[in-house]
Amino acid sequence: MQVVFVYLVVSAVLSGALAYDPDMLQDICVASTSSDVKVNGFVCKSEANVTASDFAFEGLAKAGKINSSVGSLVTVANVDKVPGLNTLGVSLARIDYAPDGLNPPHTHPRATEIVFVLEGELDVGFITTANKLISKTIKQGELFVFPRGLVHFQKNNGDKAASVIAAFNSQLPGTQSIAMALFTATPAVPDEVLTKAFQVGTKEINKIKDKLAPKKS
């Protein structure tokens, strides 16, 4: 009996450790936006107040207006936009790319990502912890997977617009842009850290910071 008990405990621990978002313990747990309390997720809204709109979102139907310097736009459909996703462990996004547009190198700390090309052609890739680049060109109707936590990117090298639908195994995968994290953090990452890491001078570091700084309206 002790062996069986230990086996069950170890199995439970391992299954919990390997899961991404925690398993749900009820049919639905629509996120309550009126509560500031978070315990690895959102407080459940009263079921009496749940409506179909908590599970619906129209934001991915059309391409968004791209006005970023890198030529791409990410429209998310995560728990912040679809409260009904709370505890369900999934979310989507739409990414639109102008010709020559880039979704810069970034990571998702809480999810694996899979992209499906709606239109256009993209060069995509991710970098393993052994610094190996795994890359491919994908076209309309094709897909590509980016493993959880690894740095990855997508680049439209065509002369026409492109778009993908991205799926994540997390209700809130999180996105950390490598460049933005290093050069626009608050408080700022010390210049001596950046100059030594990139083997450049302070002048070059400040030039990058100026280019990435939010534009004042």
Rank of each mutant, 00 (worst) to 15 (best):
H106R: 12
H106E: 06
P22N: 00
P147I: 07
I127Y: 07
L118G: 01
A179L: 10
S68E: 09
Q199I: 05
F168G: 05
F168I: 02
N131D: 04
E119Y: 15
V189W: 08
Q2Y: 07
G149Y: 02
S53A: 11
D191Q: 00
A52S: 13
K203C: 01
I208W: 02
A61N: 14
K155V: 13
G84Y: 09
V43G: 06
S135A: 15
K132T: 06
E121Q: 09
F153W: 11
T87G: 08
P190G: 09
A162R: 10
T87C: 03
G125Q: 10
D191L: 00
G141F: 09
D36R: 14
G16N: 12
V193P: 04
S170Y: 11
V70D: 03
L194P: 08
F42W: 01
A185Y: 09
A52M: 14
R148E: 12
P214Y: 05
G71N: 00
F5G: 04
E47K: 11
V70I: 14
Q26Y: 01
S170H: 03
I28Y: 04
S72M: 15
Q2P: 00
M1N: 07
N131P: 07
L122D: 10
A77T: 04
S217G: 15
D27H: 08
P187K: 02
G158F: 10
V145W: 09
T87Q: 10
I178E: 03
K155S: 02
F5C: 12
F55Y: 12
Q154F: 01
N40M: 02
T112L: 07
S46K: 13
A48M: 07
P147M: 08
S68K: 12
S69D: 13
K209N: 06
Q154S: 11
A56M: 13
G125T: 09
K65L: 12
V37C: 04
A17E: 04
S163K: 06
K132Q: 03
A48G: 13
D123K: 15
I165Y: 09
P190A: 10
N169S: 02
I205V: 14
N67K: 14
D100L: 15
T112G: 12
I178W: 05
Y20H: 04
Q2T: 08
V10T: 06
P147E: 08
G141K: 12
V70T: 13
V76S: 10
K211P: 06
R94H: 00
Q154E: 05
K216T: 14
N67W: 13
T175A: 14
L150N: 00
S177F: 06
N156K: 11
V6S: 05
L85I: 01
S32C: 04
A63C: 14
N103K: 07
P187W: 07
G125L: 09
V193T: 00
V13L: 11
V151M: 14
N67S: 15
Q199H: 04
P173N: 06
A181T: 15
I114R: 10
